[in-house]
Design a protein around this nucleic acid. Structure first.
Length: 585
RNA sequence: GCACCCGUAGCUCAGCUGGAUAGAGCGCUGCCCUCCGAAGGCAGAGGCCAGGGGUUCGAAUCCCUUCGGGUGCGCCA
């Protein structure tokens, strides 16, 4: 049960009754009515703004309206008291018995607890990573990868049909540079002294293996061949090699995609022409001359006519070029075709996860999506701010040239996949994130991964002890769901239950906002409530989970503990993090 | 010059799409282990939500503006 939906329905039913009785106008907009947990627990268990939102259209005052609704709710099931507070809040207090039943909800659902039908099976496309295939992934890529992956999982949990997609930028000039760099390594592998890698080419060691592989397979047949001959071959092989590298990195992170779409295949298939025809037909293409940007004038600026997209018509600041001076398509042109292609594949909702350096690109892409789909598709872009790699408070200096470049793989090997994933989700995407190699391995409270995992391990520690002491009892979640729960009554226990009952609500709000980080904070708070309860048991032996000579109470508390562990596991599952049952020593 | 993002406790950050007396961790002060894992917990101090206008029953949240920091600005992707 989603407690908040349940009571919103009951509040609306009460309003409906009052409408039927002619005590409220029939035509009220109820969309802004919410039921939520009050910020201050002293205000009760649930709070509704119904009276304040409806007062004006009902030509009443909040208090009077609240009195009416309260009267219709007061003797409802599970309700102890309905109170009307200051500006017109309607505050509900629920019976402990009502809250105890939520334990059963969790135990029956397992890690599927929190699943929502909100998405109604609607198709959503999430595109993430899309790193250029020119080398291995670094820590910055990892953030986008994890955010995209977790967002996809979150949307699935909220009932959307999600497709996870990777766009391979294999059509631009960069892959030619990659091919040339690979050719140098190939010559090197054949014994040639190549010296330093020239400026402008990729110096990375990771191309050595590729050069050697090509030398071993093809011998020296490309050594004296003209560039036009070896370039396409090396380009293809290099892209494949780099994508293999990236796929390995993604696998190490546990990030997966359903579809990899190649920019080059789009170009070759004529998809760009098709997309631009649509824009042409809508009168959104023209030939014009752009003004140089003020303030930062490029040295080689020359005004010249080019094919432009009327991006200003749908929210962008300037119209955007679609062709380079050599006649080939700009990246933007291909990207329009790509998003149009996604639309034609049935995605009216598209989400792109990009790096911070692409912030200036958002408006034009949204403008293009609106234009090319006639406003039928919407694009949301999540810009991930930079990741600062630190070690015990000191920034880790990274420079590709100096060879102090830290790859994602090295970080994953050092601290573990789950740690990387969780930490990447502990900040809102718009905030920069410090990733401290020393701190994330710390086993203390200020390391959220540890703190959450520790709470889960503690819960399983209790269950392990219980299995020893109550060897005869069935302690599976299904069995615990049928246990007598009356003994659960301590305020700290009820706090924990109330918090678990928020999980379905957190899923929906985080999914709606496209903000997976909210789950990290929820899990931290939930873990905190558990640690608190645990500690109360240290001060007061009667609150310990395993109660000597009282098997009924013990079973009830085990049900609570098991439910808690399941909610934590359910949240970690969205993050793609494995909940641990025991902390390593 | 323009656009986008950010500005909340000494530090790092939440703040549930406009709700009640603005929260957490770190750091600081003082407490709690014969006992299911103290790798934890409790209590205290700490705020003009960058400044100024506006919208309304109600603003950290929405709009305008000023200041400060970051990112980007045709033929890179």
């Amino acid at each position: 049960m989603n407690v908040f939906h349940h009571f919103r329905d009951r509040v609306l039913a009460a309003v409906g009754t009052l409408q039927a009785a002619g005590r409220l106008p029939a035509d009220l907009d109820l969309s802004r009515v919410v039921v939520e947990p009050p910020r201050d627990p002293a205000h009760g268990d649930l709070s509704s703004n119904v009276a304040m939102v409806l007062a004006k259209p009902a030509r009443s005052n909040p208090r009077a309206l609240a009195e009416m609704v309260a009267g219709a709710l007061a003797d409802g099931e599970g309700v102890v008291a309905v109170e009307i507070a200051n500006p017109g809040f309607l505050n509900l207090r629920l019976t402990p018995a009502f809250w105890r039943e939520r334990i059963r909800d969790v135990l029956r659902a397992g890690t599927a607890y929190g699943d929502s039908a909100m998405g109604q099976g609607r198709a959503v496309n999430v595109e993430y990573v899309s790193a250029n295939p020119t080398g291995p992934m670094h820590i910055g890529h990892a953030r986008g990868a994890v955010v995209g992956d977790a967002l996809a999982a979150l949307l699935e949990k909220a009932g959307y049909a999600v497709t996870r997609e990777y766009y391979i930028n294999d059509a631009g000039g960069q892959v030619d540079v990659l091919a040339a760099s690979t050719h140098m390594r190939y010559r090197e592998a054949l014994g040639e002294e190549i010296g330093a890698i020239p400026e402008g080419l990729y110096p990375g060691d990771y191309l050595r293996a590729l050069g050697e592989e090509l030398a071993a397979q093809d011998g020296d047949r490309w050594l004296a061949a003209p560039t036009e001959e070896w370039l396409p071959v090396f380009r293809r092989r290099a892209i494949d090699g780099m994508m293999a590298l990236i796929r390995d990195d993604l696998q190490a992170l546990g990030v997966r995609h359903d579809i990899f779409t190649s920019e080059r295949s789009l170009v070759d298939s004529g998809a760009i022409e098709r997309a631009l025809e649509v824009l042409e037909a809508r009168g959104l293409l023209y030939t014009g001359v752009l003004e140089a940007p003020k303030g930062k004038q490029p040295d080689d600026w020359e005004p010249r006519p080019q094919t432009l997209f009327r991006a200003t018509q749908s929210g962008d600041d300037v119209d955007r070029p679609l062709r380079k001076s050599d006649g080939s398509w700009t990246y933007f042109a291909a990207d329009i075709a790509y998003h149009f292609d996604k639309f034609r594949r049935g995605f009216a909702t598209q989400i792109d996860v990009w790096g911070a350096d692409h912030g200036g690109y958002v408006k034009r892409m949204q403008s293009a999506v609106a234009a090319v789909t006639g406003g039928e598709a919407a694009l949301d872009v999540k810009i991930c701010q930079l990741v600062n790699l630190m070690d015990d408070g000191e920034p880790v200096k990274m420079s590709k040239r100096a060879g102090t470049f830290v790859t994602l793989r090295e970080v994953v090997d050092a601290v573990g996949r789950d740690v990387v994933r969780f930490i990447m989700l502990t900040r809102k995407n718009t905030e920069t994130l410090d990733f401290d190699l020393a701190r994330v391995r710390e086993q203390s409270k200020d390391n959220p991964v540890f703190y959450v995992q520790y709470s889960h391990a503690r819960a399983h520690s209790v269950l392990r002890h219980a299995r020893e002491k109550l060897a005869a009892a069935d302690l599976s979640p299904a069995a615990l769901a049928g246990v007598q729960l009356d003994g659960i009554s301590d305020p700290a226990e009820l706090v924990l239950i109330r918090q678990m009952a928020q999980w379905p609500r957190i899923v929906e709000s985080a999914a709606e906002a496209h903000e997976p980080h909210r789950i990290a904070f929820f899990l931290y708070d939930l873990a905190s409530s558990y640690h608190m309860l645990w500690n109360k048991g240290k001060d007061d032996a009667s609150l310990r989970f395993l109660v000597r000579d009282d098997e009924n109470l013990t079973l009830a508390r085990l049900a609570l503990v098991q439910a808690f562990a399941l909610v934590i596991a359910s949240g970690l599952r969205v993050f793609g993090v494995e909940p641990v049952e025991e902390m390593r020593a």
